[in-house]
Amino acid sequence: MSWNLLSEDEKRRAEERFTGLSIVDNIRQQMLAESRERRYGFGDVYQFATNAHIEMTSGLQKALKQDDKLQSALDQLLSERVVYQFPRAAAASSGNLESREGDGFSIQIKHSRAQSGQVYIILKMEDAFQQEPTAITLKSGEGQYLKKLLPLSVDGVFQFLAEEDDEFVKTLRDVASEVFLNS
């Protein structure tokens, strides 16, 4: 077998075939490398946005920061797939928020009298909403995502206790944060 035995057309086809095989080898080597990091893509973003039980990971968080398309996909999915998205706090607001008001929903943060350093997060829902949320997702001003599963509601009220210095509480209070209620 010799290269010179090939016609020009055969040489072209052999080069095309070599190119395809070589690319597959290169990508496959990357995929199978023992030392590589886990990679994230649209599927991971979709599951985070649509499944209340899937939490944000540091790996996905990092990928979102580095990939504009992935970040846009998450923004799109969150805005479309949630039960409700609270409006951004007014630009004039500053410091910590103790409550957020929305159309049919409100959130209040109240200090626990029994346990200092703890707060109650109280989410109230008007009757008009047929679909109850099952989780609450926060997006901080720096683009960090936090998610918490909601307890069962009693008469349209979801209430749970949290440490005041918990990142979730701090982010919920932050004027720059966005708040989503997941289905």
Binding site: L6, E10, R13, A14, L21, D25
Partner: peptide, 10 residues
């Protein structure tokens, strides 16, 4: 792959 591509072409 070089050898394979030529073998297949032939």
């Amino acid at each position: 792959r070089y050898a394979q591509a030529i073998r297949e072409t032939l």
